[in-house]
């Protein structure tokens, strides 16, 4: 973690400092929240270049609304997850309307993820399975099982009730299990179990 992310200020406080003109606040807040924004966009889109564009736009919207931010009403991260998801939805709609053939091949995932071939295969398998889910199920599964949010937080992000969150994550996990069921040997989990 970078030293900027170690600052003890809350996200709200950093955003307020940014709005007051503090030159270091943006760096500290970005170090803390941008990895989550980028990872979320990456999981929802499965495309590094598009995820970068979405993450940059979500952060720009945060900077622009900083002077009007009302501390305590919503968490900065909740707001960012929501904006990111909405931007991803727009992007996916656009892709569907232009046709998949016209879109450039997704860029490779980050080197740290692809360092080992099997990790790379697992990463791709999970991403491919996530890509096959309906959008809302994918978003709920990613927020719950990868980002580690609680159900009430997911309900706030997705603007739905807690029961709907439970339903989406349960159905999403069942669908992922079914998609990945035929690939266990290929992904090396049978070897690990045997070893």
């Amino acid at each position: 973690m970078s030293p900027d992310a170690d600052r003890s200020d809350t996200d709200d406080a950093l955003l307020a400092l940014y709005a007051e003109g503090d030159p270091a606040a943006a760096r500290a807040l970005s170090a803390r929240v941008l990895p989550r924004v980028y990872a979320h966009a990456m999981r929802l889109l499965g495309d590094a270049a598009a995820a970068e564009d979405v993450a940059q736009e979500a952060m720009l919207r945060l900077w622009r609304m900083a002077p009007d931010w009302r501390p305590g009403e919503a968490k900065v991260t909740t707001w960012l997850y929501r904006v990111t998801a909405n931007l991803c939805t727009d992007r996916l709609r656009k892709w569907r309307s232009v046709g998949l053939d016209e879109i450039a091949e997704p860029a490779d995932p980050q080197p740290s993820v692809a360092a080992h071939l099997q990790n790379r295969a697992r990463y791709d398998a999970l991403q491919a399975a996530l890509d096959a889910l309906p959008e809302r199920q994918r978003q709920a599964v990613v927020l719950r099982h990868i980002e580690g949010l609680s159900n009430p937080e997911i309900a706030q992000v997705m603007e739905i009730g807690p029961r709907a969150v439970e339903s989406l994550t349960a159905r999403g996990k069942r669908a992922l299990t079914a998609i990945l069921a035929g690939r266990r040997a290929e992904l090396g989990y049978d070897d690990e179990k045997a070893g």
């Binding site: 952060m59 740290s112 990868i146």
Partner: peptide, 21 residues
């Protein structure tokens, strides 16, 4: 595995975000 190894933020993205800020 996905949770413990999130994609790293590219330096260029961080630079663009800070320039916007």
């Amino acid at each position: 595995a996905a949770r413990t190894a999130p994609p790293e933020v590219p330096d260029a993205l961080m630079a663009r975000v800070l320039a916007d800020a």
